[in-house]
């Protein structure tokens, strides 16, 4: 596996490199950008923003709600024991269990979605450079058809170009 990438000291030069790659015909999906922090105010960071996570979390919450309703009702009916003059299926207390499992379902669904869609965990990062953690921003392309084209597009003042 080969890759060509460059490290940039700031968001502006990284943005220029991304624009260069786009001009050279690379789609946004083919360009890899890696940063040590979220860079909310740059255009290149605005990719892949849309997510179904909110809906999946709601669905997870609904599953939690339904399973809690089933669990409480089923177990109360399975061996009906009377306590304190309350009905066998007492919805007031069951609602508390249902609330907690709704929230648990939502949280777990959101976290699972996050792990799956963010591609975690994985054995080793495909394209990576430890210098990212010192504030550098990596822009690169995995398995480029023509490395020279990529290098040319990545050449922006301040860039350090690397190949693997």
């Amino acid at each position: 596996m080969s890759a060509v990438y460059a490290l940039y000291p700031d968001g502006e030069s990284a943005q220029r490199a991304v624009n260069g790659l786009r001009a050279a015909g690379f789609s946004t999906g083919a360009i890899t950008v890696i940063s040590g922090e979220p860079l909310e105010d740059h255009e290149f960071f605005d990719v892949n923003k849309s997510t179904w996570m909110w809906y999946i979390a709601s669905a997870g919450g609904f599953i939690g709600l339904a399973s809690a309703a089933w669990l409480t009702r089923m177990t109360e009916v399975a061996w009906p024991l009377r306590t304190g003059n309350m009905p066998i299926v007492a919805w007031w207390p069951n609602m508390i269990v249902m609330f907690e499992l709704t929230m648990l379902g939502g949280i777990v669904a959101a976290v699972v979605t996050m792990f799956v869609t963010a591609g975690l965990p994985r054995r080793r990062p495909a394209l990576y450079d430890p210098e990212i953690m010192d504030g550098k921003i990596l822009v690169g392309v995995d398995n480029p058809p023509d490395a020279a084209v990529v290098e040319r597009a990545l050449t922006v003042p301040g860039a350090t170009i690397k190949r693997t």
């Binding site: 024991l81 009377r82 306590t83 304190g84 003059n85």
Partner: peptide, 17 residues
């Protein structure tokens, strides 16, 4: 008691009617 306060608070149904 018919409405015994001790019964519903028991988590394991040790106290029941």
């Amino acid at each position: 008691c018919d409405a015994a306060p001790c019964e519903p608070v028991c988590p394991t149904y040790a106290s029941h009617h």
